[in-house]
């Protein structure tokens, strides 16, 4: 799976590259508008991460170009600008998602996975790990092909953690993903714990081969038993 990162900030680019490579993607990079354009025109990517503030041009123009040559690459805009206008413009131009800096890598990971999954129009594709299968569209969680009854929050947490399996996922990343941005001011995210606790219990009771580890002071980690 090939991903193009168009980002002018070298450290940010490097960081995303490293993270995505760890996730098993093939990553290519571009630091400017022109080099980004070259790559977009010459190759196909499963997903393009596009910073809209580039030193030699606006990323939105790049997006326009991409659509005008009728490429079907998925695009996630990453921007330091939390601007509604840009967001609407970007999505109107055909971007698949819009992520505002700073973001959690876990969140980026989840968004990339969703975008790629959607792009394949393969709605029945399951998110699978060991004996656990998840159908996101139908909101179904199966262990050993038998349904597990999860509430909405538990299901969302499971999906998010499965997308970020074997990684420490911070409580705030989970909170933001499931509850939305506004929860970020909460003094502690311990309220997540009650949901996680129930989720773990349900996974254990259904003999799932996965478990959620508590990483004290950081967050949670979904592991294979």
């Amino acid at each position: 799976m090939k991903i193009l990162v168009i980002e002018d900030e070298p450290e940010m680019k490097e960081l995303i590259r490293k993270f995505l490579q760890d996730e098993g993607y093939i990553v290519e990079e571009a630091g400017t508008f022109s080099s980004g354009l070259d790559k977009i025109v010459s190759y196909d990517y499963d997903c393009i991460l596009l910073d809209i503030m580039l030193p030699d041009g606006n990323g939105l123009a790049l997006l326009q170009k991409l659509k005008s040559i009728e490429k079907a690459d998925s695009v996630i805009i990453i921007s330091a600008k939390d601007s509604l206008d840009d967001k609407i413009k970007g999505l109107d131009l055909g971007a698949d998602d819009y992520l505002t800096k700073p973001f959690h890598l876990a969140e980026l990971n989840a968004r990339i996975k969703s975008v790629i999954r959607r792009r394949r129009a393969d709605n029945h594709q399951m998110l699978e790990l060991e004996n656990v299968k998840i159908n996101i569209e139908e909101r179904l969680a199966l262990v050993n092909d038998g349904p597990v009854n999860l509430n909405r929050k538990e299901f969302d947490i499971l999906v998010f953690l499965m997308m970020n399996k074997n990684r420490v996922t911070s409580k705030s990343a989970i909170a933001e993903n499931i509850w939305g941005d506004y929860i970020d001011q909460a003094n502690d995210f311990d309220f997540i714990y009650s949901q996680i606790k129930n989720l773990r219990k349900k996974l254990r009771n259904s003999d799932a081969m996965i478990d959620i580890d508590v990483v004290y002071g950081m967050g949670y980690k979904l592991i294979v038993k």
Binding site: L15, P102, S170
Partner: peptide, 30 residues
């Protein structure tokens, strides 16, 4: 925003390091 994003993300990546002790991870979290 950008340096903050880099800082947070680097620490998040770092926190995934297997060699870290519980104590170190907790400090990273803070």
């Amino acid at each position: 925003q950008t340096p903050l994003a880099i800082g947070i993300n680097k620490l998040e990546l770092f926190a995934g390091d297997e060699d870290l002790s519980k104590d170190q991870i907790q400090k990273l979290g803070a």
